[in-house]
Nucleic acid binder design. Structure first.
Lengths: 126, 126
DNA sequence: TATTTAACGCAACTAAGTTGCATTAATTGT
DNA sequence: ACAATTAATGCAACTTAGTTGCGTTAAATA
């Protein structure tokens, strides 16, 4: 079950993802919004926004949770099977539109893939 | 700096990876070996074995640390850029020899890739 | 405007992984 | 084989991302 009420917290969080299109870690949001809302609320709202298909989540390089805007997902189906790119210098994470082809694996049924690329982003790649 | 002394703990841990070729999570090792060694020791030995190129590590589906035997790595260079497969039923993780082609990403320098596939393994795929 | 109940804040908790330090045991030299 | 050296270990305490329970607040609706 996702969002039922359009609360102040929901609006604030949606706004964060609206104004910049990079992914944001839960930890970053907790630091950034600590004066406006409780961390429990942040985790709960993010979870609901994911259920609703507004955001998708994935794990960054330390196993920490990141969220980013979905494009064209619904509560029924998440089809954000794109790779994510994390800069090892500045830590920024972007969603990549590039497709990575997952070959068929014999005797296994692949339902999901999580691809995290690491390296230097356009700003840090001098 | 990796392993200097061939201690009892090192032998026990190497043996765990010798007798089965699937990946093992740090948590599993802590449970399995709690009567034989301390969890601090487990984490420290695993780290050293990775430095030495005997093991490689990656993050499983909950961001927990997993380790698996390397094949042909050295302390200088890890070239285990293979995908890992985690069964969503039994939780088992295997290293896949299948190559996944990472396309060039414009304006970015990709140094590392971490690919985790999830689905049903050969035993659970009925 | 009153009622209902989803959403919130807070404090306490959980668990993976880390750190500091005193003790133990693997290696090295004699 | 034994003593000296110091890497490795065990233990307890800590760190921190994320979770849970519960009393209170504030959106929706009637």
């Amino acid at each position: 079950m996702g969002i039922l009420r359009k609360t102040k917290s929901v609006k604030i969080l949606l706004d964060e993802f609206e104004k910049k299109s990079t992914a944001i870690s839960a930890i970053t949001l907790i630091e950034r919004l600590h004066s406006k809302m409780n961390k429990t609320t942040i985790y709960r709202v993010l979870e609901k926004l994911e259920d609703d298909g507004f955001l998708h989540s994935f794990l960054g390089k330390n196993g920490h949770k990141w969220y980013a805007k979905c494009s064209g997902c619904s509560s029924d189906e998440h089809h954000d099977i794109h790779p994510h790119f994390q800069c090892t210098d500045c830590g920024k994470v972007d969603c990549l539109s590039t497709d990575v082809l997952i070959p068929n694996i014999p005797n296994r049924k692949v339902d999901m893939s999580q691809i995290l690329l690491q390296g230097k982003c356009e700003d840090c790649y001098t």
